[in-house]
Design a protein around this nucleic acid. Structure first.
Lengths: 231, 231
DNA sequence: CTGTCTATCTATAAATC
DNA sequence: TGATTTATAGATAGACA
């Protein structure tokens, strides 16, 4: 598929269906040929197009016969095992798609959390809208992780002599605000005054540098971090 | 194929052949499924892999049987018509490849001629190495075409009022140097003195502007114009 | 062996001739 | 119809975990 991502369903338009048929039929036979050649296996394909009573086949009438006779001599019981029929094929594809959806949702959630974290940092307090207790817990965990990571990297850099000035990192929230954990609202104690802005820029810079994210200019929002409202 | 363009031949390495087999077998069945779904045609594929006595098939044992019974009821005479067997398939591909090769060679020749023309213009005389009478004739033809084209465009621009200064174009070579045509060497009367360089820059600029070529800085050579020594 | 990743090649949808 | 072109989706080689 290309230019447009075509839905895997019967093409209603007669002209495009015919064009597609001609192209894909040729492509398919080529694929059979390639598989057979590259891997030295016996294979055949038969396609009954809607325009000719004769099917398109690969490799040759004789070649098809050879494969078919091999196929026909199998007992029915053998056939029903190990074979990929349309239903199991579809089931496999659906399972795989669901799997992917799950991963995707998880990734989206992570990105939303990161975005939220930056919003808090920018605005100086937690944005209360639409945040659950679970989310706020996860947000705290995330911030803790980031802080720990920053401590680790600062230490590494200091020991490399890059930062002669010592930073005094605040301890992670977990050890400081444990008692707030069950307060039942989203506020997680991340308030800031204007004097912290300089520091927060440094901190943001440090936080942005894992996983290949580009550093984002203060105040701009990477579209990748926009919450996916559709999921 | 990817990362490397794989030769369409039996893969000797056991491991890669198996990997390739698994990937392509799956891809092939998917293609059959797509063709069948998109175009609403009956199709089946059977692949006897080297690792299982059971073949991989599409769509299902029953589906294959249906297509097969249709196939088997055809008379032998019908089968031999209209079918694409391996040999005719290969012949088609070879013909197509030859066709492409021909076009490619022609394109390369044209590019070499253009390059030669610029060399002459840059160096003030024809480079004698490796140029046949046929080439020199074609070169003259090419230059004539370019000159005519330039005249046409100049007139157009002048009539648009873009160039208040009138250019006096030399007539095409054909009418001026007809008698040189059969002299039997490559010299085609394109000599220049240093005073012509400014003019040649204007002329080159004009010559370069058809067919989407970028204008090339004086003295540089577009790699696309390098003679293809392999053909 | 199975899945993942990524760079690259191939297939092909759509428009145009 | 069929060939060509253009731009994008899909397939997949090779490396790795």
């Amino acid at each position: 598929m290309t230019l447009k991502k075509v839905k895997l369903a019967f093409i209603v338009n007669d002209a495009s269906r015919k064009t597609t048929y001609n192209k894909r039929q040729k492509g398919l036979l080529k694929k059979v040929y390639e598989l057979s050649t590259l891997c030295g296996v016996e294979a055949c394909a038969i396609v009954y197009g809607p325009y000719e009573p004769q099917p398109e086949i690969w490799p040759s009438p004789q070649g098809v016969q050879t494969v078919l006779s091999k196929f026909r001599t199998m007992s029915e019981s053998e056939k029903s095992q190990k074979m990929v029929n349309q239903e199991t094929y579809m089931i496999q594809r659906v399972l795989k798609a669901k799997e992917k959806l799950k991963t995707q949702r998880h990734d989206n959630y992570e990105k939303e959390m990161v975005m939220l974290m930056f919003q808090c940092l920018c605005e100086g307090k937690l944005v209360q809208n639409n945040i659950s207790l679970v989310d706020s817990k996860h947000l705290r965990w995330l911030i803790d992780q980031k802080l720990k990571d920053i401590s680790r990297r600062l230490e590494a850099e200091v020991s490399n002599g890059k930062h002669p000035i010592q930073f005094q990192m605040a301890p992670p929230l977990t050890s400081r605000d444990e008692k707030m954990e069950m307060m039942g609202h989203g506020y997680v104690g991340v308030t800031m005054n204007n004097g912290d802005i300089m520091e927060s820029q440094i901190v943001m810079g440090l936080m942005m540098n894992d996983e290949g994210d580009e550093t984002i200019p203060f105040g701009e929002v990477d579209p990748r971090f926009l919450p996916n409202l559709l999921l």
